[in-house]
């Protein structure tokens, strides 16, 4: 675990200096470098994230909220994808595209969460009828 963080910091700092060099001459390669770093860092982190999400799922199963745990995981994945895409767009100077990607992520997460909001409202209704 602590080995991996030193590796990631080293690789990312190297890539940052290369991107800084490339930005003067050909700015588009800096964009490609940041996409590669996103993929690489996530590939290194994904086993750890999987482990953490596995324990979240176990907690959900133990407390009878497995459905919500799965939903939270999906929302986390969508948010991660949208946020990294938006950051890459913003680095490339395209803040409008970054905002659209973020909007798409928000809408997707909201559409996932809507059934749960309905359940909450139904529950409130049942409590108030009593």
């Amino acid at each position: 675990m602590s080995m991996q963080i030193t590796q990631i910091v080293g690789v990312v700092l190297t890539a940052t200096s290369l991107a800084l060099l490339l930005r003067q001459y050909r700015a588009e390669y800096a964009l490609f470098l940041s996409i590669t770093i996103t993929v690489g860092v996530f590939a290194v982190l994904s086993p750890i994230i999987k482990e953490i999400l596995g324990s979240v799922e176990r907690i959900g199963a133990a407390t009878d909220t497995a459905q919500s745990a799965v939903l939270i995981m999906k929302a986390l994945g969508i948010s991660f994808l949208a946020a990294s895409a938006a950051d890459i767009c913003r680095d490339a100077g395209e803040s409008a595209m970054a905002a659209r990607v973020e909007l798409a992520g928000k809408v997707t997460v909201l559409s996932l969460a809507m059934p749960m909001a309905f359940q909450l409202i139904e529950l409130l209704g049942r409590i108030l009828e009593r």
Partner: peptide, 17 residues
Amino acid sequence: MSVDMVFKIAAIGIIVA
């Protein structure tokens, strides 16, 4: 895998420049 890719892209960028 990622480190190789980073160096490859940087090298292509420098050569093209």
